[in-house]
Computed example of a mutant assay.
Amino acid sequence: MKQYLKIITALILTSCFGQTSTACYCINHLTIDSLPQMKEYDFIAHVKIIDDKIYKKPSKNDILAIGLLTFEVLELFKGEKINTIFELSKNSSCDIGVSNGEEWILFGKTINGKLSIQACDRNRRYKAIDGTRDWKYGSGFYELQSLRNLYKHDTQKFENEIRKEYFKNGNIEIEENYLNGKLNGERKIWYPNGKLFCHQVYINDTLDGKSEWFYQSGQIYDEDYYQKGKPSNVSRLYYDSTIEKSWKKLLIEDFYKTEDSLNFVYKRVQVQHETVYDSDGKTIISRGYNRLGKIQREETIDPNRNFRTVIYYHDNGLISSIGYYLKSVNYGRYQEYDKNGFRSRGWDYDENGKTIKNK
């Protein structure tokens, strides 16, 4: 799975850890495909964080703090086997979120004479404090496997067996079946608290049948169907129905007025997004809903023409706007409506997607 980096603040490094930041953003799409990509790093390793502290506090000249991480190296890919590294932009919007007890894949560079990690790079958490790993989206798995391939490290392989792994508390984490080196049969993954995280079925390494992912509370999170690896029928993503105590007072004051109304909204199992597929596994309908079940956005797609119709809705259920796209370019008439259902403004597009008429 490729790594996608979120947009965050821009980072400017000056002098020996002198940092000034007014804005900083990352638009990088960083993969791990070749050894030349790794030349910029002096240290690459899979580590477990032992200590996380502030090395240098912010000052007038250096408004960003610097952290110092202490760790145990679990697998070294490049550089010397060390146990500390500096973390730039600590406790800022550029903080990458390292905490004690977590496992990370770190990519260190020598910046102003000191080995450091920073935002907008390939650093990725592999395991949370409680031992949870990102089995659904593969964050950390991709980085670790790619590095093992590049640096010719051994990778555990499964042939004809049942694979089982456990958390430190003794609870099972994953159970899956292999036949001739391929996933076959049921695959189950659990949270450290014993709640089911995932249930899937594989045939020759290919998803087949119903696939389910769950929140840590046990409530359904993602529900999908596959036929020989292709998406089928309808996929649904659900809101989390649990309420964090720290947010309860704020939510009541700002949105739901009473605890009864808050519980009503949050405890209902509500679809957040759903996607409908055709017989070839291509998306033909996509819808988004709010917590009360009201539709907010609907998109219908003709995959053969690469034509899309996108509709947005007001809270009262009436259409807010309708737009059309042909081969990802604005097409035809775009129209907006007010909350009473009357046209408010609109315009037309030419064959190149440029506005040709305003009303």
Results as ranks from 00 to 15, higher is better:
residue 7 I to W: 02
residue 24 C to Q: 06
residue 109 K to D: 07
residue 9 T to L: 08
residue 73 V to Y: 00
residue 22 T to L: 12
residue 60 K to W: 06
residue 46 H to L: 13
residue 93 S to T: 05
residue 44 I to D: 00
residue 193 N to Y: 07
residue 192 P to R: 10
residue 290 N to W: 14
residue 149 N to R: 08
residue 75 E to Y: 09
residue 225 Y to W: 15
residue 168 K to P: 00
residue 20 T to Q: 14
residue 323 G to N: 11
residue 34 S to F: 05
residue 92 S to V: 09
residue 269 V to W: 02
residue 75 E to A: 14
residue 110 T to N: 13
residue 336 E to D: 01
residue 90 K to N: 07
residue 178 Y to A: 12
residue 131 G to E: 07
residue 247 W to L: 05
residue 133 R to S: 12
residue 342 F to D: 04
residue 166 Y to T: 08
residue 272 Q to H: 11
residue 242 T to Y: 06
residue 292 L to N: 14
residue 332 G to P: 03
residue 163 R to W: 06
residue 304 N to F: 12
residue 260 D to V: 10
residue 50 I to L: 01
residue 151 Y to H: 11
residue 222 D to C: 10
residue 292 L to P: 03
residue 232 S to W: 14
residue 203 I to M: 15
residue 284 I to G: 05
residue 350 D to K: 07
residue 96 I to P: 01
residue 199 H to V: 09
residue 77 F to I: 14
residue 134 D to N: 13
residue 10 A to C: 05
residue 74 L to C: 09
residue 154 D to E: 10
residue 326 L to V: 01
residue 317 G to H: 11
residue 29 H to E: 03
residue 232 S to R: 07
residue 120 C to N: 12
residue 342 F to A: 02
residue 299 E to P: 00
residue 242 T to I: 12
residue 158 F to M: 15
residue 195 K to R: 07
residue 285 I to K: 09
residue 340 N to Y: 02
residue 57 K to H: 04
residue 29 H to Q: 08
residue 3 Q to N: 06
residue 245 K to C: 04
residue 323 G to H: 04
residue 323 G to C: 09
residue 52 D to I: 03
residue 225 Y to K: 13
residue 162 I to P: 01
residue 119 A to L: 13
residue 283 T to K: 08
residue 101 G to M: 13
residue 215 Y to S: 01
residue 323 G to I: 03
residue 159 E to L: 10
residue 44 I to P: 00
residue 150 L to E: 01
residue 354 K to G: 01
residue 269 V to M: 11
residue 155 T to G: 01
residue 76 L to R: 01
residue 232 S to K: 11
residue 129 I to L: 05
residue 3 Q to F: 01
residue 287 R to K: 15
residue 347 W to L: 06
residue 96 I to K: 00
residue 143 E to V: 02
residue 103 E to R: 10
residue 264 F to L: 13
residue 268 R to W: 04
residue 345 R to A: 06
residue 37 Q to A: 14
residue 158 F to Y: 14
residue 174 I to P: 00
residue 325 Y to Q: 04
residue 1 M to L: 04
residue 52 D to W: 06
residue 290 N to I: 09
residue 338 D to I: 13
